[in-house]
Design a protein around this nucleic acid. Structure first.
Length: 281
DNA sequence: CACCATGTTCCTTG
DNA sequence: CCAAGGAACATGGT
């Protein structure tokens, strides 16, 4: 479930539920997700701490932990990887097969579940410092964006996935934003004209904003109505579903909603890109 | 068995 | 030193 909008929605829902709560115990089932932090160090820092706040940077979750008076606060950095989920589980709930780490909050347990274990929950904050600007904030200007693209011969799709260029865009929204901007994903970054860069910047902001408004993208339904299990997004309901809102992603061979031509799938740097060759130049 | 999957990091090559 | 490409990580779905 991991691009900026999904993380934003998760943070908004989770923050009020965990703010102010104390971590009574820590259980790490997959030490790999702490890397490079070691289990002992992690437990020493987190056990007994109070979660003072939760925020987001790019696709990362930032847990601000307040500890004993004589100890300094620490930041826990979370990342969902490809398959990560974070939620509160009632004390009586059954832990999932791929529970990577569990924080006992007293009433409920905070669970970090991750099937593929590509995610992270760590004290290492270095990745945060390498991130580019937040696409929905003022720092993501056309001036900045143009500067970040002008010396690169790499395809623009790849630049959008580069978290040091702009933070939070992933494989799905990169294709969607390029379609909205009418820009071909294969265009070398340095070939983009000023007007295209402006359109793309706006398209990125609109695409991400709309996804946040819609609540959630990837079908996050925690299959089978969970008793008390926290879940986000609409489970069915009236709003347009995830797939319905995507104009090109995973629509290879289907018709373009604008021109009725066929959506094409190409592979760039080993990852699928979807676009309309007629609408996107 | 084959291929695909929302992401990042490391290694190699130029 | 930098840019770019590809493999690796691990598990499951189709």
């Amino acid at each position: 479930m991991p691009e900026l909008p999904e993380v934003e929605v998760l943070v908004r829902q989770l923050a009020p539920l965990i703010r102010g709560r104390k971590v009574r115990a820590v259980e790490v089932r997959r030490p790999k997700i702490l890397a490079p932090t070691m289990s002992a160090e992690f437990e020493r820092a987190v056990r007994g701490a109070t979660i003072a706040n939760l925020s987001r940077r790019g696709k990362y979750l930032l847990f601000g932990l307040r500890r004993a008076r004589n100890q300094s606060p620490v930041t826990l950095v979370g990342h969902l990887g490809m398959t990560g989920r974070m939620y509160l589980l009632p004390r009586t709930g059954v832990l999932p097969k791929h529970a990577a780490a569990i924080l006992d909050l007293g009433g409920e347990r905070f669970v970090f579940e991750d099937t593929r274990y590509f995610g992270r929950l760590t004290l290492d904050t270095r990745a945060i410092s390498r991130l580019g600007p937040e696409p929905l904030e003022d720092g993501f200007t056309t001036e900045y964006f143009a500067g970040a693209l002008k010396r690169s011969s790499q395809a623009i799709k790849m630049k959008l996935l580069d978290q040091s260029v702009v933070a939070g865009v992933g494989n799905i929204y990169a294709s969607e934003a390029l379609f909205r901007a009418g820009v071909s994903p294969r265009t070398p970054a340095r070939r983009l004209k000023r007007e295209q860069i402006e359109r793309l910047r706006r398209a990125i902001r609109e695409t991400l904003s709309e996804a946040i408004e819609c609540g959630s993208t990837v079908p996050l339904n925690f299959a089978g109505g969970r008793d008390g299990l926290f879940y986000y997004g609409s489970s069915g309901g009236d709003s347009a579903s995830y797939e319905e809102r995507l104009r090109v992603y995973d629509r290879a061979g289907k018709s373009c909603l604008e021109c009725l031509g066929a959506i094409r799938r190409v592979v760039q740097a080993g990852r699928s890109t979807f676009y309309c060759p007629k609408c996107q130049k």
